[in-house]
């Protein structure tokens, strides 16, 4: 074990606690933002990343015009937040590194937990796999099938699970509690 958070200096414990609390706040607001702009169901995620279902998946041989009436409510439906390919490229470029830094920071906390090696490896894998799933889901939804929107949700829940596991075990092991043993 590289280090043991149970026996770490109180300053180190406090640093880890503040880090986890900060991530927790960020996750709470992240969840709120997801609710505002995308949603928590595969259908809403598909609408955000796959866009409206295209009646014409391939370009026509010559330019084709189709006209139909519009209602005001139909204009309103267009206000659904959508992420097209260019924006997803930008999002992936900007946010995957940040997710990597967060997973790395949480993994450093994991290394200080008194757990079997298999648990260390499993939790670190979960922490990094979650954002991979998150973005893989977005790209699969856009490029392969709307039905794969669930992969993004899976990634999101995996991120929440990873954070919760790390935080719960770290808090349990770092801080004294009223129990028989020492903290």
């Amino acid at each position: 074990m590289l280090y043991d958070l149970r026996r770490a200096n109180v300053s180190v414990k406090w640093l880890v606690t503040c880090l986890l609390a900060t991530f927790g706040v960020a996750y709470l607001f992240g969840g709120w933002m997801v609710g505002l702009y995308a949603g928590f169901t595969p259908g809403k995620v598909a609408a955000t990343y796959a866009g409206p279902e295209m009646a014409m998946p391939m370009p026509p041989e010559s330019t084709l015009v189709v006209e139909h009436p519009m209602t005001m409510s139909a204009f309103g439906e267009s206000d659904v937040h959508q992420v097209d390919e260019n924006l997803l490229i930008q999002d992936t470029h900007v946010h995957v590194p940040m997710y990597g830094v967060i997973a790395g920071a949480l993994s450093l906390v994991v290394l200080g937990l008194a757990l079997p090696k298999a648990w260390h490896l499993g939790m670190i894998t979960l922490l990094f796999a979650a954002p991979w799933l998150d973005f893989a889901g977005m790209w699969l939804t856009k490029l392969v099938s709307r039905d794969l929107a669930f992969v993004t949700l899976l990634g999101g829940w995996a991120m929440g699970l990873g954070y919760t596991l790390v935080t719960a075990v770290a808090m349990w092991q770092m801080w004294p509690r009223k129990r028989g043993g020492t903290a």
Partner: peptide, 29 residues
């Protein structure tokens, strides 16, 4: 621990770019 559970629920994260609607499309129309 309840705050951890709440964090987990809200932690169902997927990234999105925070767009701000300055004017709704029906109003613009």
């Amino acid at each position: 621990m309840s705050w951890l559970i709440r964090a987990a629920v809200a932690g169902a994260l997927l990234h999105i770019t925070p767009t701000v609607i300055l004017e709704k499309r029906p109003e613009a129309a």
